[in-house]
Design a protein around this nucleic acid. Sequence first.
DNA 1: AAAACTTAGGAAAACGTTTTCCTCAAGCCG
DNA 2: CGGCTTGAGGAAAACGTTTTCCTAAGTTTT
Lengths: 331, 331
Amino acid sequence: MPRRAPPASSIKDVAALAGVSIATVSRVANGVLNKASPETVARVRQAIAALDYRPTSAGRALRQRTSRLVAVLAANLANPAMAAIAASAEVALRENGLVMVLCDTHDRPELQDEYLREMLAQQARAIVLLGAVDSPMLRKLHATPTPLVFVNRRSPVAGTGRFVGIDNRAAGADVARWALSKGLGKAALIHARSASSATRDRVAGILEGFSAEAAALDPAAIRSPEGRDHLAIGREGARQLIEDGMAPALVICTSDLIAYGAARAWREAGLAAAMPRMIGFDDSPLNDWVAPTLSSVRIPYGAFGEAIVAAVTGADRSSGLVLPHLLVERG
Amino acid sequence: MPRRAPPASSIKDVAALAGVSIATVSRVANGVLNKASPETVARVRQAIAALDYRPTSAGRALRQRTSRLVAVLAANLANPAMAAIAASAEVALRENGLVMVLCDTHDRPELQDEYLREMLAQQARAIVLLGAVDSPMLRKLHATPTPLVFVNRRSPVAGTGRFVGIDNRAAGADVARWALSKGLGKAALIHARSASSATRDRVAGILEGFSAEAAALDPAAIRSPEGRDHLAIGREGARQLIEDGMAPALVICTSDLIAYGAARAWREAGLAAAMPRMIGFDDSPLNDWVAPTLSSVRIPYGAFGEAIVAAVTGADRSSGLVLPHLLVERG
DNA sequence: AAAACTTAGGAAAACGTTTTCCTCAAGCCG
DNA sequence: CGGCTTGAGGAAAACGTTTTCCTAAGTTTT
């Protein structure tokens, strides 16, 4: 039933053509040059080129007990920010001879576990979690040597795995400081009811930032409704604020998507003219195009790829990388 | 240097635990039940569960000469429409026991070739091209048994590969008919200067649709500037229209992203109030949230996944699947 | 009761690599 | 000239599966 792959040329063919043993071909192909004379190397290289040979990954993976695959498990690919990270990671991995396998866990623990299992069977070189959720397999994995990299959200198991992301708490505080220094007036906050460390830290930072200036956020102006995605959460949160007669001058959202949703609620309420100022997190690349008045905390997603590679290859022994964020003001 | 994967339990361990040969374990694991007694099957199953055994893909791929990997080569992951297709494909593939490997070719032939080579080395079960571009390797691949599936854009090599997408020509004609029947007045057209069959067919359909009603699109109102992405193209095209004093009542864009770009140009020109009506293609899921006045031809991206799987597994012998589109009117 | 099947399961080959030893020859030192 | 070292390269094992035979017992058919 399984369709056979094309009978590509194998190492044997190259060896035969070059008149050497397969061991030599393998060495040359892998850049081990001190075991063959320059002439032999040249001959083998020529044969490789002539046959368009490339080592089959299955054979290599079998022998080396690890593949060139790096699994990236994203919580939600529909989120442009996640897609941006994935794209950036893909480029960086490729440049390091690794291949990205991208999966969408939909933030569901069972699905995440299923993927973790599969990637273990694939002998993935490393597993990158773009928004991890706690799950049994994840805990088991911590006991294995497979490198685990947590992006945006920290590992649900304290003190394990490398982290790549921004300092969300500091970013939250920055937003609060900015709001106060601008004298924007009454602020509201909409965030996801998620247990993710990113959201938690942002919210904590925001609250801290306000209280550090002896100001405070009206608890009635904080909303964290349930919702199937950030867009819906933002819309629902804003709807509640409007319904309750709140008229904030600024709405802080813990993601750009939440802000998109909130803006829609204001439009739908016929209050487009009285739309409050808004600020989100991520600074989605689309903002300049579709949300010209949305301020946002820019997260350098384009730089995540390299950071992820560094974490994957364990180039630095540190427990992770904290990248800089930047508050981008619009509108 | 390569970090070793955890010493997961292998088929031998299972065999030892169940007191059978590895052949029997393999058979049971693959659901071949007519070669073992029910009791043996049960015993093996128990051992498999106890050891949390899952066949290593490298061994399997080596023996079967094909892997469970399906390569998806996307032209541009930053495009939410592509991301949506990828997400949909990923789910459908997974449900069929296949694993998606996602790559971003950035519409560049060399990069596409590099990925094609790599995926051949990975013994990918099939290769899905989300926006293929012509390239040497692609032509070579047509001679191999590896199934090739073209999504959105048809194969650059006539008559080869399966196709999944909508009838772009008909969709273009639908847009023209809609514009005329609504009596919207003077229309403009912005499209990418791409050689992709999707864009070509849409443009052709639009022009045909107009002439079929004995109307015509002012050639001076058709723009196809160069640009690094659709957003930039839309912005530049609109900028040209504005500069040339065109004041179309409707701007037809061959993608939603182009329309986003065009809208930005009008805003930037200080003409937000006089923004023409717009219609795009894709109907990005984000439209309802960020572009409430953008009409669009909805492409059922959520259904692409299943169609792709059907094409990949060759379940139907047809040369491809044409899915229905739908004109969604907004604003 | 011999012959022919069936059932349950095992032994072993094959898949394509990488890598660990070997070997053989040449060059060097004493 | 005998013993080292070094350079160049080969033979073969091992990795974990799947699958093709094979076998030995039991069961049916003549």
